[in-house]
Design a protein around this nucleic acid. Structure first.
Lengths: 237, 237
DNA sequence: TCGTGTTGTGGTCATAATGGTCGTGACGCC
DNA sequence: GGCGTCACGACCATTATGACCACAACACGA
């Protein structure tokens, strides 16, 4: 198990900041390292944490701050070369702010108010993003795409046409076991048929929740095996 | 029908820049506005275009430039508040570069070499991103997610009939190591059989991505060894 | 020097075994 | 009772493997 992701919470409203920090601590693998109530203190907190040898990984950044815009905080951090990831949390819904945040390389944009489920989904997406980037020293196009796709995961865990929520959940639970399984093997370990199992696995793969890779070595067409993303890739067979 | 997206192509290799510009003009809704062969001229071109009232919408940005890194170009543009989108096009595959590009808010990251089909896919994703942003003055969480998701759309490497995309990528990754390997050696270092390895190597050789040469000196039929050719843009459809 | 044997891989064919899609059927909801 | 939805079975398409024959260069003897 790797060290938890250290999170700095920035919000001018102390109660809101505390609530967000609570959300963070509630999420396994994340810990609220500090909170800041202004843009200036936020920048200072990031720099201080890095100099102290315990750098911040992620900043939950409010846009409305008393001294400066959250976007300005982002620009300042970028200009100073701080390598932190930013998750914008704001009530601003205008296109200009969203676009500005996007060009500043934020890993997500959350519109207040939101439920914990939605928040957790964003943290989960960020976790996948990190794991996709941390996998290897060099990446192929597919790996790069997977990293970018992780951030694009929709907030709502909606089950599209043709899929049912309960079945999706059971397949997800099975895959969380960490084993690499083919569609046929998933079918064996669940009351589903291979075709149905494949539909759900493909759906999860499209969302970046599971990875696919061919299983070579035996005659015949290679078997596609699926593995839960968000953990390190096992060396395989 | 809205005005076409104006694109600036940046690459230190004039032939590559021309090829990319051709790709852009070939894509409906996009037009190559200019090309630049260095970081300094790229920044100047963006500023000049904006002042001339015909701003650049998108920059195809190479990382390896003679005077400065493409990432530095991005930082400069961001620092000067230019509101252009960036699509990184590079042979750099290390995580650090990918991560740096990501934090600079690029709309995509393409690893050279690539086919036109892959390139077009990225432009299409960017088009969806723009249309998601341009739809309304204010956005809900769903709209924001859709915009971010558009950029995360995976590029499917186009493999011809008989070859699978993921296998092709693994063979490509192995060959990028720079070593000269025979089909049998590739088979040893991958879960593939010699026959399969040969099929993919021959495919890459046909596209000019790897070179072939016989390995003399030992008894028996000479072994064909394959080496990475390191071209920029393959002549694929 | 030339011809022949030896060696080891190149390249092709048939086979294997799953992937993916289409149509059908059952279940639940309006 | 009709309709939409979701899952299943079966079929065809797809892609890897193993085996086989052919080929090309070296080695050696005449």
């Amino acid at each position: 198990m790797s060290a938890p992701v250290r999170v700095l919470v920035v919000d001018d409203e102390p109660l809101t900041a505390a609530a967000h920090a609570q959300y963070v601590d509630r999420s396994p693998g994340f810990e609220a390292a500090a909170t800041a109530v202004s843009g200036r203190t936020a920048v200072q907190a990031v720099q201080a944490a890095r100099r102290a040898g315990r750098p911040v990984d992620l900043v939950l950044l409010d846009v409305s701050l008393p001294d400066m815009s959250g976007l300005d905080v982002a620009r300042t951090l970028r200009a100073r070369g701080e390598t932190v990831d930013l998750l914008v949390i704001t009530a601003h819904r205008d296109v200009a702010t969203v676009r500005a945040a996007s060009t500043l390389g934020v890993v997500g944009y959350l519109i207040k108010p939101f439920t914990y489920a939605v928040f957790e989904e964003k943290l989960e997406a960020y976790r996948r993003y990190r794991s996709a980037l941390g996998a290897a020293g060099t990446m192929g196009q597919a790996e790069v795409d997977r990293a970018f796709a992780a951030l694009g995961a929709p907030t709502r865990p909606d089950a599209p046409k043709g899929l049912s929520a309960s079945t999706l959940e059971s397949v997800t639970a099975l895959m969380r076991g960490g084993e690499w399984l083919s569609a046929g093997e998933v079918a064996e370990r669940s009351p589903l048929s291979r075709v149905t199992a494949r539909r759900y696995l493909e759906h999860l793969a499209g969302r970046g929740l599971v990875q696919r890779r061919p299983r070579h070595g035996t005659p015949g067409r290679p078997e596609l095996e699926y593995g839960w993303a968000g953990q390190d890739v096992s060396p395989g067979r």
